[in-house]
Write a protein that binds this DNA or RNA. Structure first.
Length: 106
DNA sequence: CTGTTGACTGTCG
DNA sequence: GCGACAGCCAACA
């Protein structure tokens, strides 16, 4: 499997996010070698395939910045809470505990 | 082809 | 501690 476009790499990593864990756009972008491309991760998520748990991807602050891109405004939060992640005011609690880093998979 | 925007982040003042 | 700027890539007008 050769390297593909930036988007496809984002999808691959997003799919590797374990249950009950979350990551940030910057973490993914940084793993790809372009920490400044965090916006692209979000843009890639805009086309998020069903295989990609985009609800587990938040910004570095742990805020559900992309929640309004979901079908339901509170869907993203419910999905996270369903995985045991505490979410309050659109922000993930204990972010450092549920935070997942792509480099941990390699 | 050129300019703007976008689910972001780190650095500087 | 907070506000503003730059940087990365891709899609759209």
């Amino acid at each position: 499997m050769k390297h593909q476009n930036f988007f496809e790499r984002v999808y691959e990593i997003a799919r590797q996010i374990p249950y009950g864990r979350v990551t940030s756009y910057g973490a993914i972008a940084k793993y790809l070698g372009a920490a400044r491309s965090a916006r692209m991760v979000g843009w890639a998520m805009n086309s998020c395939p069903e295989d990609v748990p985009a609800h587990r991807v938040v910004n570095r602050k742990g805020i559900l910045t992309g929640k309004h891109h979901f079908h339901g405004i509170n869907l993203m939060q419910q999905l996270l809470e369903s995985e045991g992640i505490k979410v309050e005011d659109n922000q993930i609690q204990d972010l450092d505990k549920v935070f997942w880093e792509p480099s941990k998979e390699t």
